[in-house]
Nucleic acid binder design. Sequence first.
RNA 1: GGGGGUGUAGCUCAAUUGGUUAGAGCACCGGACUGUCGAUCCGGAGGUUGCGGGUUCGAGCCCCGUCACCCUCGCCA
Length: 588
Amino acid sequence: MATIVRTHTCGQLRKEHVSQTVQIAGWVNGYRDHGGVIFIDLRDRDGLTQVVFHPEFKEAHDLANKLRSEDVIHVTGQCVAREAGMTNPRLATGEIEVQGSAVTVLNKSQTPPFSPDEADKVSEETRLKYRYIDLRRPRMQHVLRTRYRVTKLMRDYFEKQGFTEVETPFLYKSTPEGAREFLVPSRIHAGSFYALPQSPQLFKQILMMSGMERYVQIVKCFRDEDPRADRQAEFTQLDMEMSFVDRDDVMNIIEGCVRIVWKEVLGIDVPNPIPRMGYAEAMNRFGIDRPDMRYGMELTDISDIAAKTDFGVFKGALGAGGTVRTVVLPGGGDMTRKETDGLAEWAKGFGAKGLAVTKVIAGGKLETGIAKFLAPIADDLIERTGAKEGDLICFAADSEKVVFKVLGELRQKLARDRKLIPEGQWKWLWVIDFPSFEFDPELKRWIALHHPFTSPRDEDIPNLEAKPGECIAKAYDLVCNGSELGGGSIRIHNPEVQARVFKLLGLSEEDARKKFGFLLDALKFGAPPHGGIALGIDRIIMHLCGTTNIRDVIAFPKTQNGADLMTEAPSQVEDKQLKELSLRVTGQ
RNA sequence: GGGGGUGUAGCUCAAUUGGUUAGAGCACCGGACUGUCGAUCCGGAGGUUGCGGGUUCGAGCCCCGUCACCCUCGCCA
C-alpha cells in the first residue's frame, strides 16, 4: 500500500487553514447520515475533525454512506469555514470542517463492543479485554504520554545530577526474605530457578561497591502478592543509589526530582524543604506511618482518664498493657445507630474486638453509645479530645498495635466517607526514624522493618543485640497525601555489622553465606558508605493523573487475579516446554 | 486463605412476595431525510439471565457448589 499522506492531524485545523486542500486520516468516531449530506467525526490521537460529504462528490459520498464506528479511513478534502450558527465550540476544530472529496477505507472495523467515546461508562472488565479500544480514548492516551514525560523528566534530572542508568538482571537469584517471588525455571540447570527481582536492591548496592557512585534506573519489579487498587504484581520503580552520602543527601536529590515533575506536569510547587516527621510521632498522631496531612482528626491518647471509668473494655485493655485512644469525627453526631454499628463491624476487620462511640450534645454532655460509662470523665474527655457539640467520638481500646491500625484506618475512612478531605491540596511529608527491627511473635524472632541491609543509626549499632527494639534505622519514606510514594535508607557498608544484623534476624552464618555471600564478600573489598531510595512510578502517575486505580496508569495491567484479560495470560504450556524445563505439573 | 459487592441482549441497566411470551436506552440491520455534531423519524433483528446442581406446579429472583470482575483483611523484607 502506498504511503498514507497526512497533511494535518485531526486536532490541527483552524480558520487559517480555510480553502486549503488537506489530507487527514484516523478512526470514525461517529457518523450522522442525513441522506443527502453525511457527517463523519474523524479521530486521531490529536483530536476530532468533522468531515462533511456532499452528494456532488458521488464516489466519496457512496463510500461515506457505509462508514461505521472505528473504521480507519483517509480523507482528502477542502478545509472550509462553518457558517455562523453551525460551529461547534466544544471542538478545538469546531470552526471549520473538511469537505470530503475522496475517501479511502484503510480498514473496516467490526462493530466495536464499545465506543472509545463511552468507555467511561463501560465496565473495567470489558475495557481490559479490548484494551486497544480503551486506549484510543484521549484520557488514556494522556496518561500514557504523561507517564513518558515523567520518566523523561526524571532521567534528564538524574543525568544532570551526575547519575548513570545501569540495567540490572531480571533473571536473578531467589532470596526468599520479603515478598513472594516469581520463579523462572532454568532449562540448563534442571531443578534450579531464577527469581524475578522484587527490586534491584542488592545489585544497586553492588554497583556502589563497583565505584558507580551515582546509579539510577527506571525498572520493573515483581512481587507475587495479592494486588490492591494501588498495587500490581508487576510495577515500575525509580530506583537510585548514591555513595559517600548520608540521609539528607538522598532526600535532597529526591525532593529536587519530585519538585521538577510536579512543577512541569501540574505547575504545582512542592514545598522546599518537604517537612519531616518521626515514625513515633506519625503513629501517635495518626496511627499510620504514612499520614495524610490534608486534614486533622488526629488520634488522642486518653488511657489515663479512661482508667478512671468502670468500662470493662477499657479496663481490660489497659490491664493487658494496652492503650485507649480516640478519633473525633466533626459533625458525626448525625450518624445513626446502624451506621455506628457498621463502623464497629468494619473495625473488626482490622483486628479490633469492637469500636465504642459516643456523641457530644449541648452543654458538654455525652449521649448514646458508651456515654453512661463516661459520665465521670466527660469534662476531661471533651477537653482532651477537643470534641465539640455535634461531634462523634470513637474509641479503640486494645494493644497499641491494634489501636493504631484501627484508628489510623478509621480516621481515613471517616474523612473519605464524609468528604472532609480538601481537594486540590498536596501535602508532602518525609517520615523518618523508623525502628530498625520489629519482633514477630509468630516467627518468634526479630524482623527488619525496612530490609536487612538498612543501617541503624551509628549510636545504635553497639546495642544491636542488647536492645534491637530500640534501634532506629537511617530510613526514610516519602509520603504524599497519605500515599507512600517511596522509601529508602542508608545501607550497612561494614561487613561485620551486616553479619550481626543477619544473625539478629535469625539467619545462620551458613544461610547468610548461601543467600548473600556475594554481598558479604563485596563489602570486604572496599565498600563505600552508600544509600538510596526507590519511588513508585505508577503511584506518582496516579497522583498526577488524578486516579486511585493503578490499572488506569498501566497500558496493559493485570486483574485482581493476576490475569491479563486481553492476552489471557497466564496460560497452560505444552508438555514439550515442561519437559525441557524438567518440570511436572502436579495437583491441579 | 478470609470478608463484602457485582454478574440479565454487543454495551449500560430494569424486571412487584417466586407467576403469562425477560423489557428499555444506546449500538446493530433495513428504510426515509441536504446542516448535523448524543442528529431525527419509521421498521426490524438480537437472550444458555456467568456456569453446574437442587428446592418448587413454576426460578432471573430461593438454596448449594463453582467461575469471573471489583473493594478489602492477611500478605506486600
